[in-house]
């Protein structure tokens, strides 16, 4: 009997892994296509889309598309710009949005209802629809920097960062998560005389690993994939991000191999970011035993 239960267990494992793998196949095939295509010369790449060869690194395989892509555009510059803008925005966003979320869930203040309603309402405003008024505005905003007071934010990093630090979704994400945290911990800390900042920084944030990871990933994706806004506000190559760089590859006769190489290159940092966060994410699961 114990023998058959071991068999049964094994069978279930096989079924599970098969299911997991089949689903995995569904999610990964376009990306395999992208990676494999980046190694092929254009004529072969296009001919191969008609068969399973599209997913196999066969035929005339080389890295020459990558060489040519680097010649066509300053790829490292674009990646540096995107990563810089993204990193600064993510860090500031996590801080300010979690603070706001904390305030909405744990603190009582006049105007809170209204403020929260406004934040929820902003979720309905797609960025595309306010881009022009925003452009008119940022082109006249003041800034106090090393050079003293200047007017107009065009062609800077800050114009790509500051408008996107706070958003309704991230704040909402934090409020939904904070609501599930045990209130007793906070009330106990307050009774012991902790300030609200201490409660936020020492108790609530350390418990918020999963939501921080989720919010960070979301923000990272949004920022790394910025496109419309940088086109409007960066007239100098020096500040352009990766998706504007993608435009360099769509010429009259598009070199698809180079496009695929570029896509592969710009996808790597995001994937790496997720894999790193996933580990943090898993680690934080272990610490959630306190909740309930």
């Amino acid at each position: 009997m114990s023998h058959s239960s071991v068999d049964h267990h094994r069978l279930r494992l096989v079924v599970r892994y098969t299911l997991l793998s089949l689903i995995a196949l569904m999610f990964i095939f376009p990306l395999v296509f992208m990676l494999v295509s980046s190694l092929k010369p254009d004529h072969q790449l296009l001919a191969d889309t008609a068969s399973l060869r599209a997913f196999l690194p066969v035929g005339d395989i080389s890295l020459s598309n990558y060489d040519k892509a680097f010649e066509r555009a300053p790829i490292f510059l674009f990646m540096f710009n995107s990563l810089l803008v993204t990193a600064v925005t993510v860090v500031l966003s996590l801080l300010l949005c979690s603070m706001a979320g904390f305030s909405f869930v744990y603190l009582n203040w006049r105007g809170k209802q209204l403020a929260f309603s406004i934040i929820l309402a902003t979720l309905i405003v797609p960025f595309e629809t306010i881009a022009i008024p925003m452009l008119l505005m940022v082109s006249k905003l003041p800034w106090l920097g090393l050079e003293g007071l200047t007017w107009g934010w065009l062609n800077t990093y800050r114009v790509q960062i500051v408008p996107f630090i706070a958003d309704g979704l991230t704040i909402f994400l934090f409020t939904q998560y904070f609501k599930d945290l045990p209130r007793e911990l906070i009330e106990a800390a307050r009774v012991e005389g902790s300030s609200w900042w201490q409660v936020y920084w020492r108790i609530v944030m350390p418990l918020s690993g999963p939501v921080i990871a989720t919010a960070a990933i979301l923000k990272f994706l949004v920022m790394y994939n910025q496109y419309l806004w940088p086109i409007m506000v960066t007239q100098q190559e020096q500040y352009r991000p990766v998706l504007v760089g993608l435009q360099y590859f769509f010429q009259l006769n598009t070199a698809w191999g180079e496009v695929m190489a570029y896509l592969t290159l710009i996808t790597m940092p995001v994937l790496a970011f997720y894999l790193v966060l996933q580990r943090a994410f898993i680690a934080s699961i272990a610490s959630t035993g306190v909740k309930g």
């Binding site: 009582n108 403020a115 008024p133 706070a166 704040i171």
Partner: peptide, 28 residues
């Protein structure tokens, strides 16, 4: 009630949203 702390925590994020989402939308 914690009006002061509440506002201090919420204001940086909320203020940015007012400036960069609500104001442009009013323009729209």
């Amino acid at each position: 009630q914690h009006n002061r702390s509440g506002w201090l925590f919420a204001l940086p994020g909320f203020g940015l949203m007012m400036l960069f989402i609500v104001v442009p939308f009013v323009f729209a």
